Simulated scan of single mutants.
Amino acid sequence: MGFVRFLFGLCVCMLCGAAPLWAQGKTLTLSAPSEVRDSGLLAFMLPRFALKHGVRVTVVESDAEAVLGEAGVPVFAKEDFGVGLVLTTDSPHGETFAAWLTSDIGLRTVLSFKVDGEAVFSEPVVVQEEVAEVALSGDARRGQDASLRACGRCHVVGEINRMAGIGSTPSFAVLRTMDNWQERFEIFYVLNPHPAFTIIPDVIEEFDETRPSPIAPVTVTLEEIEDIVAYVAGIDPADLGAPIAHQ
């Protein structure tokens, strides 16, 4: 009998000590527009999140730590109404909720919510920003001549000097494959090894006689650099093939 009482007391202690996680402060407040609140999605979604992460989410009208609305990171949509998420505080529970809602599991939970057998919400609509192309002001024909004169002794600038250049120096076609190729050409004179032998009138003066360039200096004007960039823009990027796969 005494042993039974002992086991009963032990079970009571264990149950009393196993307080819910949200009783330990893991709570979060959330506000949402009427289109979301009245749909029943929150009553369907939030218990699943709480079961997964132990965070109890309370829906409030205002001053919420997490806000569903038109602004923020797109999380789902309803017809033409996009819903985004904004965290108004640095709450770690808010970050957990955001990570869950933007994950595949969170999105599948939203998409699986149905009313009368019909899905109510859809995947978020992400608007792609159009990137305006910047018109190049240089002259490509003059740029070819400037490239051959200023760069041709080290780089293969095209078919015009295909058998020239230095083997360890990338060709213009290879440089053209880089995402930042335009920036690299526009400021090439500050990228090694060019500062050691490049002169840009009104930008980089001639070398001191006591510290001469190790090779014959190359003089290029800013206008010629614009022409070179225009010329390189018309070069097809080299086909470097697929990346090397390590087994």
Rank of each mutant, 00 (worst) to 15 (best):
S147F: 01
M178I: 09
F3V: 09
G69E: 04
G167D: 12
S122N: 11
L111C: 05
E61I: 11
A233R: 12
I235P: 03
T102R: 05
F76I: 05
E95I: 09
C11Q: 13
P214V: 12
D80K: 11
V229R: 02
Q247M: 08
E70A: 10
E118H: 14
A98W: 05
N180P: 04
T89G: 06
P212G: 12
H53L: 06
R108W: 14
V232Y: 03
I244S: 08
I200L: 09
G94H: 02
V125S: 14
A98H: 07
T96G: 08
P214C: 14
A238E: 06
F121Q: 00
V126I: 14
I166D: 10
A233D: 15
W181F: 06
E183R: 15
M14V: 15
L136S: 06
L10T: 09
A32E: 01
R153F: 12
G72R: 00
F185V: 00
A146M: 04
S34H: 12
D104R: 13
L175F: 08
D80E: 13
V232W: 05
L68F: 04
L175V: 11
P47Y: 13
N192C: 07
G40F: 10
E224K: 01
S31K: 01
H155V: 05
G25V: 07
D139T: 02
C154K: 02
A32F: 02
I228G: 00
W181P: 02
I204T: 09
G25W: 07
P170H: 04
R48E: 09
F81A: 15
V174S: 04
P20A: 12
V12S: 03
L10F: 06
T89N: 06
G165S: 08
T96R: 13
V73I: 15
Q182G: 04
D227A: 02
P237F: 10
F197S: 07
A99P: 01
V60S: 12
L85Y: 03
T198Q: 03
A71T: 11
T102A: 06
V190W: 08
D227P: 07
S39Q: 08
L41Q: 00
F8T: 09
L85K: 02
A32C: 03
A50T: 13
D208M: 11
G143F: 00
L101Y: 00
P217R: 05
V115I: 11
A164P: 03
E70I: 07
R142A: 10
Y231P: 03
T27K: 06
V67C: 08
A50E: 15
